[in-house]
Design a protein around this nucleic acid. Structure first.
Length: 1121
RNA sequence: GGGGGAGUAGCUCAGUGGUUAGAGCAGCCGUCUUAUACACGGCGCGUCGUGCGUUCGAAUCGCACCUCCCCCA
């Protein structure tokens, strides 16, 4: 048999290899065969959190998707059956905003003029475009999922644009499926079509309907009337969940105005605001009842403001005239900033005071008022702020709501009516100047909420929105709640579900509970176009609210418009056409126009993708998911929350058992990736320039609970580590090829191989068990750390010490053992790294395992986890002994360096004192040490040798508590070695007797000897150099120089040479005994002890015995002279 | 304003009461090597954010303060 092993490049092109592997997997249908192989095995249920199909995926997505792929591959190697379903998040404002941008739209009016049906279709098309793109990118990442053909997704997109009603037939896993284009798109991810799930699917939408109907049945769904954060550009309310994502620094005008007091002529309140437009709707001024307020004089003017705000609020000199508590100011009336506006007058008239007259502006008390900013007097506009609204409701204040849904002033606001809220700051300041209400304006930098999608600063607006009630918060510890209390409050029910889940890292558990305890009711409506059509029918005539739970129910209740909807997916505008009969009064009722919160879409997937309705048995098999993983930031209030809430409502059980969360990906400079900062890296660039395995290795080594800093330098570091593994592999390929080695027999049984072989195989067995244990515990970094240590051991100890065994000079049986061992170690290492580094593992496995044995599985990913097969090779005693040896080598190298004796210079002797006096397999191990350290003999010494002395190390954790203040004296005695050894093994230090188990006895060097020590291990080198040793050192030096020349001449490894050595006679004589070996090592067919011919380049070598010149050239079959 | 986390070498971070605080990277110096621009080793005088306390002993525990980040208001 010819050797199957061929040299591989020393500098691999990882991206090119990865493309070749992708092609190999495609040709051999490897993934499909893996699924078939594991079908019917024990189940491992992974639930993919949907990725938003709205843009190409970024490197931050790759981090999470590397984890997802890693765990799926690992569990596949354990033989577990999986669903392998990827998910795309499809509906919601993020898609709308991008489509609007492409069309150049700036408002909802543009969309309505364009046509909602066409707009919604474009949203679907955008999703299909990027689902196709992300599918390709994920495949490039090596992610194995039941992918749709990206070309098919693009074809569906084009058909949708062309004619959604066209009937087509597509191939599905169970045969051809015929339907309209629109319906085929709506059925993507369903069993008959396979592939990724899409949250815009009919099933997803209708299941949310049934969830909402259930909420309504239990009385948790309601319409709220409140002042909400609102995006004027998007024309929609922003939920509490979304608010948190949009805080940004922003500069606003910090405007201070005077409110003249009615009962105190000549005096005015000073009030500060950063939102001038809200002054149009002012109804009150709030003071902190417990704060101190002062009256100050500035020129002719008299002002009231908080005592603690004088410096920041006033401009110019002032004189304090009077001081009062805030409570004393309450009830004072003042003239408002815009009393002439009809809207103000109407609102005040509609809210009469106790005397029956219209409401008047007044000072009110509010505990939340502070003195950190402004004037200590807060302007209150209940129609323009959430807290203002709450306060206004408590005090019965009138509400003035100035804005329409586009942020434009409604009629009744004089010249402001019809103007955009973003444009009125200047005119308002102008009006205030003219009316004498202006005091000062100064730019003010603060964190202000912005729309998380389009970046527009939010305003607050009085609106109707739909909510799911979270239930009461009880002011008592959770464990004291009664069953009735929990049954009455959804939030505590969710908490009980959260209790049953393993959160990794652990702080996730507290975070989620904290969120649940603090969260407000869940706002689920959005006044937009593309998304879940909320199945809510709010009868204007009698107020009855109906929530429709399914398509069938809608059909039954429909009294009008069904034929317009028939054949369409449950999206706007078609579903809007259907009217139902109000069960309260019989009147026809339209659906509310709102669409749903997109987290409803993602939260229902443990039900929709597992066919909760149409295949309960299937659902029961795969629910709950064993594992989900996503980036932590944000998801406590988003996906995790919606999963938990929906599963609690529908089943009151956890939708997943274990959740693994990770942090945020930043650029290498520690800042968020940002194109204009130059620290952004696109996924495609990263994949093609660093390779995805390098990326995956970086991710595997990251601490998931921290943020990761991602960049080209970090990638270089990761690649260097992989190159060490590659070099070991390349070494094997080159030498196995050179030796013509074949794996067919010849090698002794592993148990009878030399100690190095048994050691590396034991380490490999330990690695397989250790990595399995780490990955089962969801500790990728721990697994990666074990792998790194193993690669280091394989390269810098096993291979370095074994290299000669692979050469032509080695003993035949030993060489066979070495090749067989290294092959086995590499194949099994490839299997162990396969989940993390699927491409590199495959590359190595194909070259070393498949090429050598057609009977093995033809992909590393079709093999099983190797720990079971390897367990018999484990020898932990040997591993510990080798550990001691490695430490001895390290100490001895340090001694050589100190003594200025380089490794090439042989030494006569090395003395070693071993901890415990001996080692298993001592002779073989010490021979390795002699070889590594280039010493002729290793001699054992006892620890009572004259070279060392005993020292006592008291074990502080054991004696600290007992001995307390005597410790310093004991430690001083130990340092001075003032110790008395007692016959029973105890010792006396500073008059105190310490038991044998309270101290450690160390052998340490006596001062002044060339020794090194470490926990009972002592190493001593003999620094005496004889002439003979020097001569051998010279020979080694010369050999080194010849090898360098060979390299410079770019000779092949097996190309013979002829060699010239020109040296003084004395030097030549010293070298004579070593020339045979020199010739053998350097493949010199002829060695001339003479000057080289003039046409051959020579170099000088500095030897201990004098200077020599050497030269070589390729051997052509006979000597030159 | 409340809650949580962090602050340790030039950079990124370990270090849960034990006396002498470490690793990786970068830098410098060396070494090894037909695995050939691979690899290995050595080199660290750090106000352990600041102050006060507890203790025989504090980076570690407590209190106060400063700075940054996150979550919630």
């Amino acid at each position: 048999m010819q050797t199957p092993f061929r040299p591989v490049p020393a500098h691999p092109d990882f991206p090119a290899q990865e493309h070749a592997i992708l092609e190999l997997w495609r040709e051999r249908r490897t993934f499909a065969r893996l699924r078939a192989q594991n079908a019917g095995g024990p189940r491992w249920s992974f639930l993919d959190g949907p990725i938003t199909a709205n843009n190409p995926m970024g490197v931050h997505h790759a981090w999470g998707r590397a984890y997802k792929d890693l765990f799926q591959r690992f569990h596949a190697m354990l033989g577990q059956d999986q669903r392998w379903q990827n998910g795309f998040d499809c509906q919601g404002l993020w898609v709308e905003v991008n489509v609007e941008r492409e069309l150049g739209f700036t408002s909802k009016r543009d969309i309505e003029e364009y046509g909602i049906a066409e707009f919604v279709s474009l949203c679907k098309q955008r999703v299909l475009t990027f689902a196709a793109r992300q599918t390709e990118q994920s495949i490039r990442l090596g992610m194995w999922m039941d992918w749709n053909d990206p070309h098919e997704l693009r074809r569906l997109r084009d058909l949708l644009a062309d004619d959604p009603t066209r009937v087509i037939t597509v191939d599905g896993p169970r045969g051809p499926v015929t339907d309209t284009v629109e319906q085929i798109v709506g059925r993507l991810g369903m069993p008959e079509l396979g592939g990724s799930y899409f949250t815009f699917s009919n099933e997803n939408n209708y299941l949310i309907w049934s969830f909402l109907a259930e909420c309504h049945r239990r009385g948790w769904l309601y319409k709220g009337h409140d002042t909400m954060p609102w995006c004027a550009r998007c024309g929609t309310g922003i939920s509490q969940h979304e608010m948190a994502e949009g805080y940004q620094e922003r500069e606003d005008p910090g405007l201070t105005v005077r409110f003249p007091l009615v009962e105190r002529p000549g005096e005015a309140l000073l009030v500060w605001t950063t939102t001038p437009w809200t002054l149009t709707s002012n109804v009150a001024a709030a003071v902190g009842p417990a704060l101190r307020y002062v009256k100050v004089r500035q020129g002719e003017q008299l002002y009231w403001l908080g005592r603690g705000t004088l410096k920041q609020a006033l401009e110019g000199p002032f004189e304090v005239l009077e001081e009062r508590r805030g409570a004393d100011l309450v009830g004072w009336h003042y003239g408002g900033p815009f009393d002439d506006l009809p809207a103000v007058q109407q609102a005040f008239a509609a809210s009469p005071d106790a005397d029956g007259g219209p409401y008047e502006h007044r000072v009110v008390a509010w505990d939340e008022v502070g003195e950190d900013e402004g004037t200590g007097i807060v302007h209150i506009a209940p129609g323009c702020g959430a807290e203002d609204f709450q306060l206004g409701r408590q005090l019965g204040l009138p509400v003035i709501a100035p804005l329409d849904e586009n942020g434009v002033f409604v009629p009744g606001f004089g010249s402001f009516s019809g103007r955009d809220v973003r444009e009125v700051a200047e005119p308002i300041v102008e009006r205030l100047r003219k009316s004498g209400r202006f005091y000062r304006v100064a730019p003010y930098l603060h964190r202000y909420p912005h729309c998380w999608r389009c970046g527009t600063p939010l305003v607050f607006r009085l609106v109707d929105e739909w909510y799911i009630s979270m239930g009461p918060v009880y002011d008592q510890p959770r464990e004291t709640l009664t069953r009735e209390q929990v049954d009455a409050s959804l939030r505590y029910q969710i908490m009980e579900v959260v209790d049953q889940i393993r959160w990794i890292p652990g702080f996730g558990y507290e975070r989620e509970l904290d969120w649940l305890l603090n969260m407000h009711d869940w706002m689920i409506s959005k006044k937009r176009y593309w998304g879940l059509a909320l199945p809510i029918y709010d009868c204007a005539a009698c107020g009855t609210v109906t929530v429709v739970g399914s398509r069938e129910e809608l059909r039954e209740r429909a009294v009008d418009g069904w034929e317009q909807f028939e054949g369409h997916t449950p999206h706007r505008p078609y579903v809007d056409a259907v009217k139902i009969a109000c069960p309260g009064c019989g009147a026809p009722v339209e659906r509310i126009q709102d669409v749903g919160n997109p987290w409803l879409d993602a939260g229902i997937v443990p039900f929709s993708t597992l066919h909760y309705r149409e295949d309960p048995e299937f659902w029961r098999r795969w629910f709950p998911a064993d594992f989900i993983t996503e980036s932590f930031p944000g998801q406590f209030r988003n996906w995790f929350y919606s999963l938990l809430a929906m599963s609690t409502v529908l089943r009151r059980e956890p939708p997943f058992r274990t959740i693994f969360g990770y942090g945020t990906l930043y650029g290498e400079d520690g800042r968020p990736m940002h194109k204009s900062w130059g620290n952004a890296i696109e996924f495609d660039d990263a994949a093609e320039r660093m390779g995805v395995d390098v990326m995956r290795w970086m991710f595997a080594n990251a601490r998931p609970e921290d943020n990761i800093l991602f960049g080209w330098h970090a990638a270089d570091e990761a690649r260097r580590e992989l190159l060490v593994l590659w070099n070991v592999f390349a070494f094997f390929m080159r030498y196995a090829g050179l030796a013509g080695w074949t794996p067919t027999g010849g090698a002794p049984d592993p148990a009878r191989r030399p100690v190095l072989d048994r050691w590396i195989l034991s380490r490999t067995a330990g690695l397989a068990a250790g990595v399995r244990e780490r990955l089962e515990d969801v500790d990728v970094r721990g697994a990666a750390t074990l792998i790194s240590a193993h690669i280091d051991a394989l390269s810098t100890w096993y291979l370095r010490r074994s290299r000669r065994r692979f050469s032509r000079h080695a003993d035949e049986a030993d060489r066979a053992a070495a090749f067989a061992t290294l092959q086995r170690a590499l194949v099994d290492l490839a299997r162990i790294v396969a989940p993390i580094l699927p491409f590199l593992a495959e590359e190595i496995y194909q070259a070393i395992a498949v090429a050598a044995d057609p009977a093995v599985p033809d992909s590393v990913h079709l093999t099983r986890w190797p720990d079971g097969e390897l367990a018999g090779l484990r020898d932990e005693r040997l591993e510990r002994a080798m550990g001691t040896l490695l430490r001895a080598a390290e100490l001895a190298r340090g001694l050589r360096a100190q003594a200025g004796l380089r490794l090439r210079q042989p030494l006569a002797r090395l003395w070693v004192a071993l901890p415990g006096g001996d080692l298993p397999e001592r002779d073989a191990l010490l021979a390795l040490l002699a070889d590594e350290l280039n010493v002729r003999e290793v001699a054992l010494i006892g620890d009572e040798s004259a070279l060392v002395e005993r020292r006592v190390k008291p074990l502080l954790p054991r004696i600290g508590k007992r001995l307390g203040s005597q410790i310093p004296a004991i430690m001083a005695a130990a340092r001075a070695n003032a110790v008395e050894y007692l016959p029973d093994g105890a010792v006396r230090l500073a008059g105190v007797t310490l038991a044998p188990d309270e101290v450690e006895i160390l052998a340490t060097p006596r001062p002044g000897t060339a020794v090194a020590h470490d926990e009972g291990l002592v190493v001593v080198i003999d620094t005496t150099l004889t002439d003979e040793l020097r001569a051998e050192g010279d020979a080694r030096e010369l050999q080194r120089a010849v090898q360098d020349l060979r390299r410079d001449a770019e000779l092949e490894l097996d190309e013979p040479i002829e060699l010239w050595i020109e040296a003084p006679t004395a030097v030549a004589e010293r070298l004579a005994p070593y020339l045979g070996r020199l010739a053998a090592e350097t493949l010199a067919e002829a060695v001339h002890l003479s000057a080289p011919p003039p046409d051959v380049a020579a170099v000088e070598v500095e030897l201990d015995g004098g200077r020599a010149r050497i030269a070589l050239r390729r051997w052509f079959g006979e000597a030159s002279r």
